[in-house]
Design a protein around this nucleic acid. Structure first.
Lengths: 352, 352
DNA sequence: GCGGAATGTGGTATCGATGCCACATTTCCG
DNA sequence: CGGAAATGTGGCATCGATACCACATTCCGC
């Protein structure tokens, strides 16, 4: 309807007459104290004698009182809802991340508002606006655009970026140790005698891809190998595309091992290798960054780097909560979650 | 601290002085109208001339106004946040379900508050209370206990149960067509000549397991086979347990095919078969209910029943929203999402 | 040209909990 | 034993948006 801007938001519809829920007033009457006292007895850091506190709690329980967060949030200008903005819940990486975040938030008494942005800048920005409207005190985001964290911070919302860092970011950030992980993975292959290793990768603008690429290079340098730039196969973030790119890589170059930069690309690479009936790891080795469950179910199981995704999520939540509680110095924080090489059957000595 | 009941909830901490956000008042001043008019112009179904509406919108955009949902919700006694209560985000089934729900909710202007209950009744109940506190108009839940939907409904919250139905449930529900799916899957095996088919299953109290078991039986009956009750192998919802159960099943009985009742059990079954170096499907066929990505990546790919989990999630959301908007008759609704047999390489003719 | 219906806008009370301050009691100590 | 400090409670205003009603205009038809 509106030409642009202020999109017409869903307006709460005229629902049926809701059940009347007990209020602080009701509890006060029931317990024979004032509403203020009820509030203090139940929640606030304020004073309340143990006796009164117990009486109020009993009364609240008796009549089934449940605090209204909307009223609470409005008055106290805070909220226990935290926004979580990720690309795609169906990707196990994001699901694990969200699971870790949720676990930590919940045990601290916070709630998670989860939004998929499908990796789309416009949706991401719209989600940010929604979270602003909800007056969340903090947001955890796997950013697509720098604008999103920017807008949030400009409005006083704490932001933790997860998994990746955009240039000129001012937010706290939790990253995997991509460089070390990729280096170890590459060195593992080099130690097996591989010298012509293909790298299947989709992006190198974000810290994630950039780090993995850097680790790949570093491993070569440390072992006096030069990286053949033609073996770095750029593709898009999509299994089918990765498959085609792998095909091309195999057609044009004689690599003895392939590293896929993430779990999505690995699907494509594996599919292509199987399709060619290549014996893994006898004829070619395959390894992937970002361990997800299927990688240990296929035959042979894939050698991978486990980036402790759930723990990464927990870290994000802990960091954000600490920030919200004002426990941190203003200085921007960067947390690095270690990555761990898991050697399985898909990597073996270089042929011949 | 408190002996029991009214758990001490996290209280919003004294955060740093938040940024002052523009209010309706500010927009009103900027646009030269009254606050009431601003409200109507931006949101409410009320009247506002196009001219004023445009002017107000422009003003709002100019000063960066974002509605405060807490205030809005408090006053209007509604909310656009929907609770989603599931067991385990790391299980692709739940992740897909949540993804479907989120997609539908978001496109309708609602938000998703996601809570993992880890399949634990206590956590489930606590989550329900949190959602009550948030005054969500509706909740989608994969119920563990009947008490949870009960409590919510008693407080006037609309509930849609997803994936399973507890006895004596009064809520709307969205189910997969477990019976048909399991019947088709079983019939597929029977058509291939299998007569001794093992069923690996964890629960049959919920409609989910019960339906799959019923379908399994029905296929036998329809084909004049009797079900050997010993081939129904009960296990717990855990891959390792399923593996042991599979081992026992193979040791004690000579089955020519195994059906796993869900994606988790399938992992255990597959692991055991691989461990025994059994040729699939030459020596034994394996099939699973609930198609998840890894099943098409393993070799041979698994024959499965795809229960359209994402679509199931969408259905839940659509049903709940319709209910909230009062578009439905009071009668309890039950939606059945069709299941689809996907034949892949893991099932073949019965040996000999 | 006038009564009365449409139409659009402003004013005010209110949603429910909490921040803040005042004040009634106790407690404590010289 | 008096007065100051400590302690615990109640009262009242307030967070920001919206529901609801009153009212000023404009628009009709007869």
């Amino acid at each position: 309807m509106s030409p642009r801007g202020q999109a017409a938001r869903a307006v709460p519809q005229p629902t049926q007459p809701p059940v009347r829920r007990p209020t602080v007033q009701d509890v006060a009457r029931e317990a024979g104290v004032s509403p203020s006292t009820v509030s203090r007895a139940l929640h606030t850091r304020g004073y309340a004698s143990p006796a009164v506190r117990a009486r109020v709690r009993a009364a609240a329980e008796r009549i089934g009182y449940v605090t209204d967060h909307n009223a609470r949030n409005l008055r106290s200008r805070t909220s226990t809802s935290i926004g979580v903005l990720i690309s795609d819940l169906r990707n196990p990486f994001y699901a694990d991340l969200a699971a870790g975040i949720e676990q930590e938030l919940r045990s601290a008494g916070y709630q998670m508002v989860l939004v998929n942005d499908n990796g789309d800048p416009a949706e991401e920005l719209q989600a940010a606006e929604t979270l602003l409207a909800m007056r969340v005190p903090g947001v955890i985001v796997t950013p697509v655009t720098a604008k999103c964290p920017q807008v949030l911070q400009d409005n006083g919302v704490h932001v933790v970026c997860a998994d990746r860092e955009l240039s000129r970011s001012k937010s706290d950030v939790v990253l995997g140790d991509n460089e070390t992980g990729a280096r170890e993975l590459t060195e593992h292959l080099i130690a097996l005698g591989h010298t012509r290793i293909g790298l299947l990768i989709d992006e190198t603008k974000w810290s994630t891809g950039a780090g993995r690429l850097a680790g790949f290079r570093a491993a070569h340098v440390d072992n006096d190998l030069t990286v053949d730039e033609d073996l770095i196969a750029y593709t898009s973030f999509d299994a089918d595309a990765a498959r085609l790119t792998t095909r091309k890589l195999l057609n044009d170059h004689d690599v003895t091992a392939i590293i896929s930069a993430n779990n999505v690309l690995a699907q494509g690479a594996l599919a292509e290798l199987k399709d060619r009936r290549l014996k893994i790891p006898r004829q070619i080795s395959l390894a992937a960054y970002d361990d997800v469950p299927w990688m240990s179910l296929v035959q042979p199981a894939l050698t991978t780097v486990d980036q402790s995704t759930v723990e990464m999520g927990r870290s994000c939540a802990r960091l954000l909560l600490a920030r919200i509680r004002g426990e941190l110095t203003p200085k921007r924080r960067q947390v690095k979650v270690p990555a761990r090489l898991i050697v399985r059957g898909s990597t073996g000595p270089a042929p011949r």
